[in-house]
């Protein structure tokens, strides 16, 4: 009896210490960015052919993995890692194209942090075909086209789509304005102010705010240029002329570090 107890105690001791020792030697999972080779991920058709009814669950798992990765990424993350993350999220999307979260995550990081708006747009486009009731996806695409790529015609198309889905007359008029006048300043300010209202993320708000301020400067300068043209019957050679000719007191400050400039008759802020 005592012998058995002794053996048990020794075994327990070994178990506890061994287990502790094992966990000590286990390197902490840090999501080191070294081994992120997108080619190591399974292909969508393979997964689809294997997972059957559990596909949505696989989608969840890839999303969770992607979300953890994304939380470790930042502006200086190398391009390949962004590519890897993109593949992961794509797997999540393709295993269940109705799943909303991957779209949101991609929209949240790719245009803003990774500076890859085109990726976000291509990613979101698939969702539009599936989540036909969801106005937000086409809205995202419209926004990305407008804000990052300045492709107004495409932007208008998707914003229209979004307006049609949730019967939003405001968005509808805006889309038609964008379609008609492209990068028109007033349209831009209205649009972005609308966006700002629905944005909670502080960083994103700042970025949009910056753009709105820049557009306000452009609006001011445009007015001045028109005034200049009326007075002198020609375009000013540079923006500084507006100040020297006394049309405005001083050039507005551009939130995008570089000063405003005049290029081929258009006022640029970037």
């Amino acid at each position: 009896m005592i012998k058995k107890g002794l053996v048990l105690i020794i075994a327990l001791l070994f178990y506890v210490s061994g287990f502790y020792w094992l966990s000590l030697n286990q390197p902490m999972e840090t999501f080191s960015t070294e081994h992120m080779n997108a080619r190591l991920l399974p292909s969508v058709s393979f997964l689809k052919a294997v997972c059957g009814e559990f596909a949505p669950l696989v989608s969840d798992v890839f999303f969770a993995y992607g979300a953890v990765l994304a939380s470790n990424f930042n502006h200086s993350t190398p391009k390949e890692n962004w590519g890897y993350l993109f593949q992961v999220l794509k797997l999540s999307r393709d295993m269940d194209p109705y799943f909303k979260d991957p779209y949101r995550l991609v929209q949240g990081i790719y245009p803003w942090i990774a500076k890859m708006p085109d990726r976000a747009i291509s990613f979101l486009k698939k969702g539009v075909d599936f989540r036909t009731w969801d106005a937000i996806l086409s809205y995202y695409i419209g926004f990305d086209y407008y804000f990052f790529s300045e492709r107004y015609r495409e932007s208008a198309r998707y914003l229209f789509m979004s307006a049609r889905i949730d019967h939003n007359p405001f968005m509808g008029t805006l889309a038609s304005k964008i379609a008609y006048r492209g990068g028109d300043v007033d349209t831009g300010i209205t649009f972005l102010t609308g966006v700002l209202k629905n944005t909670l993320n502080e960083k994103t708000r700042n970025t949009i705010m910056m753009r709105i301020n820049a557009l306000r400067g452009v609006k001011l300068l445009k007015k001045a240029v028109t005034e200049y043209k009326k007075r002198y019957g020609r375009m000013p050679g540079s923006l500084e002329e507006l100040v020297s000719k006394g049309i405005i007191h001083k050039l507005p400050e551009n939130p995008y570090k570089t000063p405003y400039r005049l290029e081929a008759g258009r006022i640029r802020f970037d």
Binding site: E53, F54, L57, D60, F63, A67, R104
Partner: peptide, 20 residues
């Protein structure tokens, strides 16, 4: 709650899978 934002969809999928 840790997996995503779209929790209701995840829980439905998950529980249906449990039935299967």
């Amino acid at each position: 709650p840790f997996i995503g934002f779209d929790v209701c969809r995840v829980v439905i999928d998950f529980m249906l899978m449990a039935v299967s």
